[in-house]
């Protein structure tokens, strides 16, 4: 029997993704610790990282960071494969899909605030559809649409402003300290 050594080569990109995902996981833990009046109404602080990554490193890196954040965050919170995990995965897929389109908006007119608002609406929209289709199969779920929509608009705007501010402070690409 010969010993074989499997070498995993870690690129700079991998390290960057891991570092950013760790920051996002930290923020989603803070998110989970904030008490909310209604499940689903959350600040979504980790999306700040997603948007910064999108602006600085592109959509693919943002998708990696978000995917790892959802996975690792759910493991840490004991939510893995629980309904909350699928809700958060669905929301992330929807908002990443929206961001894939939104980042092509003309930069002169639309900034991180627009991205953030659009992503927040896509996020809650995806979650509501999943909840309707699977968790609460009744149209009564949509009675909460105004509440979720208002929360998405509010937190989306605030997160977008934070992203815009961070981008103004560190306009040039460089290591992110989140």
């Amino acid at each position: 029997m010969t010993l074989s050594v499997t070498e995993l080569s870690v690129s700079a990109e991998d390290r960057r993704i891991a570092r950013l995902a760790a920051a996002a996981v930290g923020l989603s833990l803070i998110d989970a610790a904030i008490p909310t009046p209604l499940p689903g109404v959350k600040p979504g602080l980790a999306n700040i990282v997603t948007l910064l990554v999108l602006a600085r490193y592109g959509w693919t890196t943002a998708a990696w960071v978000t995917g790892l954040r959802v996975l690792a965050g759910s493991l840490l919170l004991g939510q893995f494969l629980a309904p909350g995990f699928f809700l958060s995965a669905t929301g992330s897929v929807a908002s990443l899909g929206m961001l894939a389109l939104a980042r092509h908006l003309p930069e002169r007119w639309f900034g991180p605030v627009s991205w953030s608002i659009l992503a927040a609406f896509a996020h809650i929209g995806g979650q509501l559809l999943l909840a309707r289709a699977w968790l609460i199969p009744h149209d009564g779920v949509f009675l909460l649409t105004p509440v979720f929509g208002a929360a998405a608009l509010f937190f989306g705007t605030i997160n977008g402003l934070i992203v815009a501010r961070l981008m103004n402070e560190q306009p040039h690409s460089g290591p992110l300290h989140a």
Binding site: W109, G111, V113, S114, I117, F121, L153, G156, G160, L161
Partner: peptide, 13 residues
């Protein structure tokens, strides 16, 4: 930090 389109989107939303 708001760009013109951001306001538009905020109001539309």
């Amino acid at each position: 930090l708001f760009r013109p389109g951001d306001w538009l989107l905020l109001l539309t939303g």
